[in-house]
Amino acid sequence: MTAIERYAAPQSLDEALGILQQGEVTILAGGTDLMPQTKAGRVAFKPTLMNIGRVAGLKGVTLDGQHLRIGALTTISELLRDPLVAQHAPVLAEACDHFASDQIRNAGTLGGNINNASPAGDTLVPLIVLDTEVELASKPNGSVATRRMPLAEFFTGPGRTKRNANELLTAVRIPLPKPGHVARFYKFGTRPALDISTISIGIAGVMRDGTLTNTRVAFGAVAPTPVRAPRTEAALEGRRLDAGAIEAAADAARDEVNPIDDIRASAWYRKELIHNMTKRMLDHVAQA
């Protein structure tokens, strides 16, 4: 049985933050995670259910100086067909193409995928390798305050983040790519989409004269949160992307992840996939 005492569908950010400030709020956006989680009893409703779907200004992709700014309520389908995303963050669009199904992409929001904080969340790995920041807003003293944080530091565990209870994730900001920027995403699966990731891999960096710098490597579904892979990055950073470097990076990747056994895959197999597919992706980067 639920204990919802209040349903609110605010129209403005100010109003939404005001409700959040009062505490004990379950936030509803697309609903694609919240509905099954509450039905199955994995998530309990708080006394206030706040539907943020009608809050103005939280939707859409814009250029904001040297950043791509994506509103938290932008749906996965909108990202998939957005020309700015296609131009500046194609790897994010690629991840969106592997996301659930058309019906869920039409409902699910980027903010929802981030806040759900699944270690296998499809957009998280590409966003991390793109140095994405999250933007959090709150209204602690009657006026709106915002703060930013790298997405790579945002997650604290499955379903858990550093978002405070009075904060709303309003947008993400992705720095515009530098010349020579490359980014790749791989999601393991036997089908194009509608699959919970067994592992996913994101690789990004600036490729110049066969050498990779500003290297970012992140993995999904191998830890309680999506993770950066510092040793793999170190094995690549500033090195010529030849067979030796690629093999060393793939080995480092396998050694530094620490996945678990579950019904989808064993830890051993996940490590093998991380190795083999990191290598395959780097081969493709080197050959491109």
Binding site: T190, P192, I263
Partner: peptide, 16 residues
Amino acid sequence: TRNPNFRDYKLVTAPE
């Protein structure tokens, strides 16, 4: 039964 759902039981889908 560890996977009593379509998510993890995996029927074949159209693209496959």
